[in-house]
Amino acid sequence: MNLLLLFYEFAKVGLFAVGGGLATIPFLQDMGSRTGWFTDAQLTTMIAVSESTPGPMGVNMATYVGYEISGIPGAVIATLGLIFPSIVVIIIIAGFLQKFRQSKTVDAIFCGLRPASTALIASAGLSVAASVLMFHQSGHEIAPGQAVPVIQLFHWPVVILAAAIFVAAKWGPLKKLHPVVFIAFAAVMGIVFQF
């Protein structure tokens, strides 16, 4: 019964959280306070771990919460619950799109969606950039009202690393490398230079 309830709770999150993994956080907070399965403090730890381990963050959080509630079966059931609505809804939409692929209306709508979708991806990139490339958001204290020269706002070693990877992935002889190679290299740089 407990597992069934767990599946149901996470299917609800999967159905109502629209967007990236961050969109699941308010629903998880609500779940924690209603069921008493975990506290806000535990959730904060789970978010930190989910962000810093492989895998999409939303999935990681479901697995983590599920594990904390009922061990390995809980981890599996919570994750399956989270993805269940997506699978159903997307298969219906994808089937619909396949059927109406030739429709001029659908084609016109997608011509408007594509630049918007590209912009939202760019915006997500900017959010990550703001949190890692700039000092004031990465935990380094700047006193309020203190005038800070623009040059001190940036975490320069990280900016240089990001710029170097961008150039290498785009034009250099290294552009054929798998993206994960750049990620692994950057992790090592982060450890070596104590970012």
Binding site: T45, A122, V158, K170, I183, A187, F195
Partner: peptide
């Protein structure tokens, strides 16, 4: 349980995120 608290993990994550920014920019 406190994986994210290790300084090593935090330094690595800042590096990883720098790479993620660069790779997303390249994808865009």
């Amino acid at each position: 349980s406190n994986f994210a608290q290790y300084p090593l993990a935090r330094h690595a994550l800042v590096g990883i995120n720098a790479a993620v920014v660069a790779l997303i920019a390249s994808s865009v």
